[in-house]
Amino acid sequence: MTAAFRLVLFAVSVLFYMPAIAGKPEFEVAIRQHLFEPSVIVIPANTKIKLWVSNEDTTPEEFESYELNREKVVLGGQRSLIFIGPLPAGEYPFFGEFNPKSAQGKIIAE
């Protein structure tokens, strides 16, 4: 892919996406040594939030949750955005599909 083509795609993407950016609470979760940090994220119930997942490992990870219906591959060293909610109050576990034993966490909506 040429640089120019990438640039055009980028410009289109920014235009396309503008309206959705505004005004949603943001949360951060990091992946370090196949662990979610923090492993418990408390978010407001019935509100759409933006969850930034930054993978600080060199290996990729797939953020996955059956309860939240989310799956997204986050490459090593990459920061990705996932929209979550609005959720009714409760606990929503998530895990890293590539390392499900260690990468576990949950979102608590309250």
């Binding site: 370090r32 040594q33 662990l35 979610f36 940090e37 492993s39 034993k101 260690s102 576990q104």
Partner: peptide, 9 residues
């Protein structure tokens, strides 16, 4: 239980 500390689970 399972816990995270010291960079491990």
């Amino acid at each position: 239980s399972e816990n995270n500390f010291n960079g491990y689970r």
